[in-house]
């Protein structure tokens, strides 16, 4: 593909990009791949199956969204699967604790690609009001790639529906012709996220080297000056 072609693709990915005048009010089939992507994505985005997976308060709003007043089946999302193998979308609906992050990562690894993660509510996005706690992960995006963030505490069902629409838009932009737009059109299965380990604190194996360095440093620091404030400042 030429450079020009790449630019054009990027433009298609950008939802803000203006539609050229000659293409307005007409369907343009510029390549077979793009047509295929459009049809394929139309099918995918209208049949996202979420996983039945409630964590905390937000899960109740998620149930309210699935119930009759807001009715997420209008988006083709009513098939809520209890098994990660059959699910496309993981809605992280609530506080992710250190104890729970291990099963969450395991469930994510078990989901078949293409898979999406929607972080619902302040807690799932960044720890929320419970962030300062000793057992709370400050945001699931430290472990999993998150596609859509829905802020709020809790987001109302309508806010969540807006998040679903955002996710559909994102799916629409993923191109079969462009392997870089999504991880799973590349070669072979993607790598599993390494499971966190419940040690003295939760340990992300990807940060093991950091742990070793810090463990040594922390020991010396603690011996030298236990004053927490000065430490914080020094670090900031």
């Amino acid at each position: 593909m030429t450079d020009n072609g790449k630019d054009f693709l990027r433009e298609l990915h950008d939802p803000e990009a203006p539609v050229p005048p000659e293409l307005q009010s007409s369907v343009a089939v510029t390549s077979f791949g793009r047509l295929l992507s459009t049809v394929y994505n139309w099918g995918r985005r209208n049949s996202i199956w979420p996983m039945a997976f409630g964590l905390a308060c937000c899960a109740i709003e998620m149930i309210a969204t699935a119930a009759s007043r807001f009715d997420q089946s209008r988006f083709g999302m009513e098939v809520i699967r209890a098994s990660p193998r059959q699910a496309d979308l993981m809605i992280i609906s609530g506080t992710v604790t250190k104890k729970m992050v291990v099963p969450i990562v395991r469930l994510y690894n078990q989901m078949a690609e293409p898979k999406y993660v929607l972080a619902m509510g302040a807690c799932a996005i960044g720890g929320g009001p419970f962030k300062e706690g000793y057992n709370v992960v400050s945001g699931i995006d430290k472990y999993l790639p998150v596609d859509v963030y829905v802020p709020g505490c809790p987001p109302t069902p309508q806010a969540l529906l807006y998040g679903f629409i955002a996710l559909q838009k994102k799916i629409d932009q993923q191109m079969l012709t462009n392997p870089n737009s999504v991880p799973w059109y590349g070669r072979g299965p993607s790598e599993a996220v390494p499971l966190p380990i419940l040690g003295p604190d939760v340990i992300d194996p990807r940060q093991a080297h950091m742990l070793r360095r810090r463990a040594g440093a922390a020991g010396q620091e603690a011996a030298a000056s236990p004053a927490a404030e000065s430490d914080l400042e020094a670090e900031a």
């Binding site: 964590l55 905390a56 609530g94 506080t95 604790t97 104890k99 729970m100 099963p103 807690c123 009001p129 419970f130 300062e132 706690g133 000793y134 057992n135 709370v136």
Partner: peptide, 10 residues
Amino acid sequence: GYLHRNHEQI
């Protein structure tokens, strides 16, 4: 404890 979010400490 999978949702232990340290209510009392906070």
